[in-house]
Each structure stands twice: as C-alpha cells, then as structure tokens.
Amino acid sequence: MFRKKLESSAVPLRYPSEPKCPVILVLDNSGSMDGEPSVELRKGLKKFLKDLRKDDLARKRVEISVVLFSDSAKQILPFSTVDLVNEDSLMMDPNGKTAMGEAILFAISRIEERKLDYSKNGIQYFRPWIWLMTDGSPTDMHPEGNEQMKTEWKVVTEKVHEGVRNGKFLFFAVGIEDADMDILRDISVEPPIRMNEQKFSEMFDWLSKSIASTSRSSTSEQIRLDPTDSWGKRVVK
C-alpha cells in the first residue's frame, strides 16, 4: 500500500531564532583604574569573549554590551553576539571621575530598550545580566553627599532594587582593590563581591561559565551560580 512518509525537509516551520541572553558590563574607567587594573581588565575581557565564542550555544545566544563610566557613561559596545565583537575596538582610556549612578541608569535603559527590540521581533530572551565593576566610590551619587547626589542615590538604588525584585534583570557588583564595598552593598540586592588581587582572568572565567550555563537552561526556577571562591569573596554585613 502506498504510504506517505513524513519528510522532515518538507515540514514547514516558522523561522525560529535562538533566545537571547543579554549581558551588559558596566565598567569603571575612571582615573584610578589607570595602569595595571585597566590592562588586566582588558585582558580578562578578551579572554571572556574568547571563551564564550568556544561555547556553541553561548555564541548564538549571549549578547554582550559594554558601558564605560568616568566623567559620564558611554556605551562602547552595543548588544552584539560575541562573534561580532572586535575586541580591539574595546578601548579603555581611564581618566576622570566615577559617574557610577549615571552608568547604572544608562545600563538599565539599554536593557529595557533591548527587551523591547526582542519583543517586537518575536525573539524570546533570558533574564538580562548587569555586571558592575568599580575600584572606587561614585562621584555623582552618595547617601551623604549634597542634595543632588542624595537624590541621584535614591533614584539609582530604588531602580536597581525594584528591577531585581521584580525580575527585570540580575544585578551583580564587583569591587576591585579599594572599592567602597559599603556603597556597593547598598546598591546591590545580592551581596557585592570583592575581587581578590588582580583576579580579573579568574573572574571572567567564572562569568563566561555562569552565563553560558544560564543560556543553556531551558526552564529554570532559579539560577544556581557556582561559588566565586576562585576570584573573590561576597561581602555581607
């Protein structure tokens, strides 16, 4: 009897696109990062991109953006899959102050824009990551600063806390060397992590693994991250 076989090549499908995992790195580029920290940071960043490229799924799913902050915040890399990133273009030229408040608000806006783009194009996405790194203390916001700084402080911390609690994004803060950990602890919902001396490479190694494993998850109630012992300590009160 004639039987029609199911030919997978003849089965019509929509054009599915990989779900995206947006990650925005918000990096301190103020004067104090000059010298070894910024050299090591850049080296770590290069390795981070290289490692993500080696992971077949992360290559398709992870989208990295980089925001630098000094006197103001600047996006030096718009959200891009790692294959499209030319790391030579990720120039850091540390100088100036530490506009961390501006940078955080800027990063949150970029994340929301990106989500809208995804939705418009029918692309599914994972919970975005905001990864903040600093070696100092913000110069544009402070709970004990002048009126303007106090207001900015309130706006930024509320926005971060609200975003994390409502699942809009994940927020991690990493302190390098003399970073003001008290400030980071107040901004972040999760305890901030103080990086051990010059452990940039280990930190980025951890980050690429964690992001890759998140981008692999199909359904998860909770993201379980590995301990950070290899590069830093969580600072709890």
Partner: peptide
C-alpha cells in the same frame, strides 16, 4: 510563559 525564555511554572512549584 513568563517574560523569560527559561522560566515557567512546574508541577513541583
């Protein structure tokens, strides 16, 4: 579904 690609509800929730 929830907003995110990797999050849903489960029989065990």
């Amino acid at each position: 579904v929830t907003e995110y690609a990797n999050e849903t509800v489960f029989l065990t929730s």
